[in-house]
Design a protein around this nucleic acid. Structure first.
Lengths: 166, 166
DNA sequence: GGTTTGGCGAAAACATCTTGCGCGGTTGTG
DNA sequence: CACAACCGCGCAAGATGTTTTCGCCAAACC
């Protein structure tokens, strides 16, 4: 089972760093119940093994003047692999698009976008996204409010599964 | 304009910490071109003022055994404020639901969910989400692949706007 | 039973954080 | 203009945290 190469202390480290990525190593060590040196070694190992992909400050979008968040559901005309890749490349180049997920079902892609205001999103939509070749149809939905936005993974679910399958 | 209370150095700090939230303060200071003490003071101020909401390690979901990511589009029977709040409360309590956004248009909510495998998501869907009162309709879309997943905000867009409106 | 492996903790060298203080530039006012 | 108040910077030093080295122990494996 995936993640089984990690012992309980490693998983505890990941959970703590997911909750507070700027914690000092000594604080982390005391929380997970080992001393600082082995704790740091474990963190380095987890980083190098790719379990930890990075650390990011979570910045308030509205405070920074990004008032608008939009989900865009995109359908393409062609779903040939080359055309999918081309579209994905465009999404990576558009700064207002923060996430681009390819889906199954009738919708080909869902895009999470941010923008300073509605008009700048509209101009992106009409001048960039809708004009992009191979785009058949785009449905956009404005985010009215955000009830939950938990970054990362539910470690409690993981622990429960490991306990059950032990 | 929002974010204008921040000077270019503050914005630079935010951009750097968004890219690498575990950078040491001296490294950060040298990158933004000031010495360490004022840099730390600025970071503390930005944290207290709410510009920085937190720091999180970005952990590889698949490595940890969360193979499945799903978007669920939810329609409710009643959109009265009390019923919306009740549903949002449920979403906050469900660990598999990582994000819950209220939308305009025909879809009331979009949920981003993770799960260890398809069957555990299916059981959540049928036993929890679909059985929740007031839920009229749920359309789910499995994420086939993720082309872009940039946490945070496009600071280059912000700088361009500030330069234009200067 | 010896060897290997992996992980731990103690201690020391090194780097960073944090605080107080003085300097220089800017603003507002007489 | 001159002056004072203010703001933010950099410097320096003590406190704190990080990282390396080393030796030890226990489990796994010949």
């Amino acid at each position: 089972m995936a993640g089984s190469k990690l012992d309980p202390i490693d998983r505890h480290i990941l959970a703590e760093l997911q909750a507070d990525g700027r914690m000092t190593n000594v604080e982390l060590a005391s929380r997970v119940g080992i001393s600082a040196p082995p704790c740091l070694r474990r963190v380095r190992t987890l980083e190098e093994a790719g379990y930890i992909k990075g650390y990011h400050a979570d910045i308030d979008a509205r405070e920074m003047g990004f008032e608008v968040q939009v989900f865009a559901m995109v359908r393409l005309q062609s779903q040939a692999e080359a055309d999918l890749s081309t579209f994905e490349g465009r999404c990576r180049a558009w700064p207002l698009v923060r996430e681009c997920h390819m889906l199954n079902g009738e919708i080909d892609f869902i895009l999470k976008c941010v923008a300073p205001d509605l008009s700048s999103f509209q101009s992106f939509l009409t001048e960039q996204l809708l004009k992009a070749e191979n785009v058949a149809n785009v449905k956009t939905s404005l985010v009215i409010r955000c009830a939950k936005d938990e970054p990362g993974l539910p470690f409690d679910v993981l622990e429960a599964r490991l306990a059950k399958h032990a």
